[in-house]
Design a binder for these strands. Structure first.
Length: 804
RNA sequence: GCGGGUGUGGCGGAAUUGGCAGACGCGCUAGACUUAGGAUCUAGUGUCUUCGGACGUGGGGGUUCAACUCCCUUCACCCGCACCA
């Protein structure tokens, strides 16, 4: 007899919803635990089997913590702004809001069918004006603190589509949709000054319980590097530029300088003779995307400007070139080239026959650049010094002579925070006809998206909102001044930067959340999601959180104490699941055929949570069989509790049970669900062998199973004679004494190889163990004609005899 | 190129401080029950074997009484970044 998952699962899902079983008390006396999932973008494709993996993990922890007496906050919501809805609206003329609502309903139904213990009263939706009111409010605060500003930056402009594209929408220099060419074009854009937080974002990583690989990715992304800024004057022109270098000690070897093609100085310094070449080169670069620029970078390109810079340390003339291997976006967009000690400069110098001067001994500059350690040569006052010493001395010299200064640079760039989209949070700014701009007054928030019949690109590079004239044009009622609303909207990342705060106090209309509630619940204790958000979402969210901390809104410096990335679930052929490969597994089908409990169990049993493992239909069947075994162990065919389950305890299962409690509890805590499940399987196997099972142990076991397979657990709990949900039953505890066996098996080794095993009392002394080993028949045979050199005894474990 | 990680049966994976390699599951083999079996139960299942044993955690070397675990070296694969000065 197998159990009827469809009936049981529906029954308990309804029970939980109707009884609000998982409702969180915001101000509870209990200790808090905040378990957070990365909320999904509700795509039209519906839930993927990858989604429930992370969700099940946090659900298991949440359910265990409730049973351990914690007040648990475990919410879910929707990251619902996004491109597909906009594209759908453009294609069909329908409203993105209605489309989004429909998808949310599908997602919600699917997620509820998996039996997660969310408090649905705290559901948030980033597209809800009551939610994005506060996203806009945070933007205004950032603007007021000088962290939001407008700047001319190069963007991916697609002339054919009449719109700007995000980097991820550009593939090989062409638009993802339609394959139209994309070029780099400077446009005035909203930026967020995340670089102001670079140092803190880097330093505070130390205290976080995050995977080291992920922290490293953030460190690399921030890319702190220490060096010096050196100023170069331009020969016979009253101009100068600065470069950033990590090797100021090699300044004597700087034989030329390179500016990025977009560098503002280029136009001023170019000589008439070189003008045509330079302009031609700049034009070529402009029409390349970033991707093309790096892809075609195997061969260095560049053009001489005709101008010369003066090396501040030795007065030598250095030709100034422009080349696209120097990026305007890093440092000052200009470099001093030291071809002898920098590979890129070496390559460039070789190609264009520029002089190479060795200033650090140790390499062979006829063969290539040498970037290792060595004594300085040809370097005036640095001669004979090592690298670190020379760097210090050069910086001191530069500062003394006003030619430069110590400088720290970051790879991190400010965050381009505007999209030419309709379906995003409107940026609450008004541009007035006198050239000033103001924020929308806070009492007018939320600044809602106008409903538009026909969402189409404006064609000018502005968002479709530019077409909504009534919305765009505003008049100051007091002064009569005319203004225009900002038509750019925020990128999709915005809403997800703070959603975990709103869950804490989702209905608040006066604040994004009440301070005492935030005090009660922050930080998030466990955050699980995919590794694809390792840098952007997690860095942006940390940035906003730090800002909110600075203005006193949140009480913690960091939002997420512990973070974990679940792995991917691959198709049966070990490939990524995708529609085109036809190997996508739909959770709805699995829930129908095997049940939600089976799906949850299987996904947790597949392997370690962070591993990427291929889906296996056989494995899924196996998980179902385990649940069937549990059912048969506890429930008779007639639906009554098994006759094997009795009140008395004859002690047979003591050790296995207590071991199981210990291992499952510890494994759950460490997110080692696969091994916890295997221990539960061991326990069930032992129970099947036993004649009787104490009821207490069955109850304890069902409690431990309930976080993974809550529906079947609730049903069996009911059959065990309880009338309330298992959700708040106390978590089982183990008795350390029951784990100790009086008899232990000792391994007898000769030369490190197992030759025999004996059972002895656990407190046999070292000496006695040695004696037992040497008197063992089998061992005796093996050592009779040998000399015993040494006997190693590990009490309770083994005896190893070294003899030859 | 730089950074991080992973290599264990036919497959997914276990293995506290170095202390019985292969737990648990899948698959497979044989048997039982059965009209039937993609159900259930029982036994077996790393490789080789002269049935004594020998070999075995990507390869090679080392430390140790003892190494999947520590050290050196090498190979393969995965992920991230990629002209970052």
């Amino acid at each position: 007899m197998s159990y009827h998952h469809q009936q049981i699962e529906k029954k308990w899902q309804t029970y939980w919803l109707e009884n609000k079983t998982f409702k969180t008390n915001t101000f509870s006396e209990k200790e808090k635990f905040y378990a957070l999932d990365m909320f999904p973008y509700p795509s039209g494709a519906g839930l993927h089997v990858g989604h429930p993996e992370g969700y099940t993990a946090t659900d298991i922890i949440s359910r265990m913590k409730r049973m351990q007496g914690y007040e648990v906050l475990h919410p879910m919501g929707w990251d619902a702004f996004g491109l597909p809805a906009e594209q759908y609206a453009i294609d069909t003329g329908n409203s993105p809001a209605a489309f989004t609502d429909k998808n949310i309903n599908i997602f919600k139904r699917q997620i509820q069918a998996l039996g997660f213990s969310y408090d649905w009263d705290r559901e948030v939706n980033t597209t809800d004006p009551n939610y994005y009111k506060w996203t806009q409010w945070i933007f205004i605060k950032m603007y007021e603190h000088g962290l939001a500003y407008m700047d001319e930056v190069p963007v991916n402009w697609c002339p054919a589509l009449g719109t700007v594209l995000a980097n991820e929408e550009v593939i090989d220099g062409k638009s993802e949709r339609g394959g139209h060419p994309v070029i780099r074009k400077p446009m005035k854009q909203w930026m967020l000054r995340i670089t102001a937080y670079a140092d803190r974002l880097l330093e505070d990583l130390e205290e976080l319980d995050w995977p080291e690989s992920l922290k490293d990715m953030q460190r690399n992304w921030i890319g702190k590097s220490e060096g010096a800024e050196v100023s170069f004057e331009i020969e016979s022109l009253n101009e100068a530029f600065t470069v950033f270098t990590t090797r100021p000690d090699t300044l004597f070897g700087a034989t030329y300088a390179v500016l990025a093609p977009e560098h503002p100085l280029v136009k001023k310094i170019v000589t008439d003779k070189q003008k045509d070449d330079v302009e031609k080169y700049i034009h070529e670069i402009e029409t390349k995307s970033d991707l093309e620029r790096t892809e075609l970078s195997k061969e260095k390109t560049g053009v001489f400007t005709g101008a010369y810079a003066i090396n501040p340390v030795n007065g030598e003339k250095m030709p100034i070139w422009i080349a696209d291997y120097v990026l305007m976006s890093y440092g000052s967009g200009a470099i001093m080239a030291v071809p002898a000690h920098d590979e890129r400069d070496y390559e460039f110098a070789t190609k264009f026959e520029l002089p190479i001067v060795e200033v650090v001994a140790g390499g062979d500059i006829t063969k290539g650049a040498y970037s290792g350690e060595g004594e300085h040569i040809n370097s005036g006052f640095l001669n004979g010094l090592g690298k670190d010493e020379a760097i210090m001395k050069m910086i001191a010299w530069l500062e003394e002579h006003g030619k430069g200064t110590k400088k720290i640079t970051y790879r991190l760039r400010d965050w381009l925070f505007a999209r030419q989209r309709y379906w995003g949070e409107p940026i609450p700014i008004i541009h007035w006809e006198d050239g000033t701009m103001t924020t929308v007054p806070e009492e007018e928030l939320p600044l809602e998206l106008p409903s538009m019949n026909n969402i189409q690109p404006s064609g000018t590079g502005e968002s479709p909102l530019a077409n909504a004239e009534e919305w765009v044009n505003v008049i100051n009622t007091e002064t009569g001044m005319k203004g225009r609303r900002e038509t750019n909207t925020m990128p999709q990342w915005a809403g997800s930067c703070w959603y975990f705060l709103r869950y804490i106090d989702p209905e608040n209309s006066k604040q994004l959340a009440a301070p005492d509630a935030l005090q009660q619940w922050l930080p998030v204790d466990l955050y699980i999601g995919g590794a694809e958000h390792a840098v952007l979402h997690l860095l942006y969210a940390r940035f906003w959180h730090k800002f909110l901390y600075d203005i006193g809104v949140v009480p913690t410096k960091e939002p997420f104490t512990k973070l974990f990335n679940q792995g991917m679930i691959l198709g049966e052929g070990n490939e990524k699941m995708s529609k085109s490969k036809g190997n996508v597994v739909n959770p709805d089908d699995v829930i129908e055929s095997h049940g939600a409990d089976t799906l949850r169990l299987y996904e947790m049993f597949m392997g370690p949570l962070d591993a990427s493992v291929a889906w296996s239909e056989n494995g899924l069947d196996g998980s179902r069989r385990f649940l069937d075994r549990v059912w048969r162990l506890t429930i008779e065919d007639d639906g009554q509790l098994s006759r094997k389950i009795i009140e008395e305890n004859d002690g047979t299962l003591d050790k296995t049970y207590h071991e199981t409690v210990k291992k499952v509890t510890e494994d759950f805590e460490n997110l080692h669900f696969n091994t916890a499940i295997s221990q539960m399987m061991v326990f069930v196997n032992e129970c099947n062998k036993a004649e009787y099972i104490p009821k207490k142990y069955v109850e304890g076991f069902i409690k431990m199973l309930s976080p993974i397979a809550p529906h079947i657990a609730e049903e069996i709990w009911l059959k065990l004679g309880h009338s309330e949900t298992i959700t708040y039953e106390p978590w089982p505890v183990y008795d350390e004494e029951k784990l100790i066996e009086n008899e232990v098996e000792i391994v007898l080794q000769v030369m490190g190889k197992v030759r025999a095993k004996v059972n002895v009392s656990k407190d046999v002394s070292k000496e006695e163990l040695e004696k037992i080993a040497l008197e063992n028949e089998k061992i005796k045979d093996l050592i009779t004609d040998k000399t015993i050199r040494k006997v190693v005894v590990v009490p309770g474990k083994l005896v190893n005899i070294v003899a030859n």
